[in-house]
Design a protein around this nucleic acid. Structure first.
Length: 187
DNA sequence: CTAGCGATTGTCT
DNA sequence: GACAATCGCTAGG
């Protein structure tokens, strides 16, 4: 199958399932990218989600087709990249293991830390505000799901002030370059 | 190593 | 007018 042709599989998935499924997938943005190693799920009736209060101009993409991008500005400075799941649900991409177009990413970021954080990776990949709503269809953006199901790390989401108890942050076990360590599993 | 804080701007109350 | 799904710098142990 062609790269970026996973939108049919993504359609109908909930954000939590998709967040788990995207660990180990390959993300490419105009020829640069790598393996997704950290994600977070945001659901429809989720106080921490931008979709919680219903559709607005800003979060319209979250209510659009699955397998498209939701790009928003964070703290007035950084952009963050999400993959839309079911209506009102999306998965925040928090970290990549860079594999392709590393030189271009290093040029866009003046740092050795290329993709270990949601704001850093959008800068490294050259994500623009106009990418909001764009499909992951292999044109500019593509996602190729992995065949295997690697061991996952699970923990609470980062940087939110509501629903902090939900374990909706996922990471690739053993990966280097996570935006933050995962807390030790209780027990 | 961890903790604190300023930058900067669109969106919602 | 408050606040935000962050980052990078500085100070201190």
């Amino acid at each position: 199958m062609a790269p970026g042709s996973n939108r049919d599989q993504i359609a109908g998935m909930g954000a939590v399932d998709l967040a788990r499924r995207l660990i180990g997938a390959t993300l490419l943005v105009r020829g640069a990218g790598g393996t997704i190693i950290e994600t977070e799920a945001y659901a429809r009736d989720d106080p921490a989600s931008h979709s919680f209060r219903g559709p607005t101009a800003r979060n319209a993409s979250m209510f659009g087709p699955a397998g498209h991008a939701y790009v928003y500005r964070s703290y007035g400075i950084h952009l963050c990249l999400n993959v839309v799941a079911r209506p009102g649900e999306a998965v925040l991409i928090r970290a990549l293991d860079p594999t392709t177009g590393i030189q271009a990413m290093a040029t866009r970021r003046n740092s050795a830390m290329l993709c270990n954080g949601p704001g850093r990776l959008t800068q490294a990949l050259g994500i623009r505000p106009e990418d909001d709503g764009a499909p992951f269809d292999g044109t500019d953006l593509s996602i190729t799901l992995s065949g295997d199901r690697p061991d996952l790390l699970v923990g609470p989401r980062i940087g939110i002030s509501r629903a902090q108890d939900l374990p909706w942050r996922f990471g690739l076990a053993g990966a280097k370059g996570l935006s933050r360590p995962f807390p030790p599993h209780p027990g």
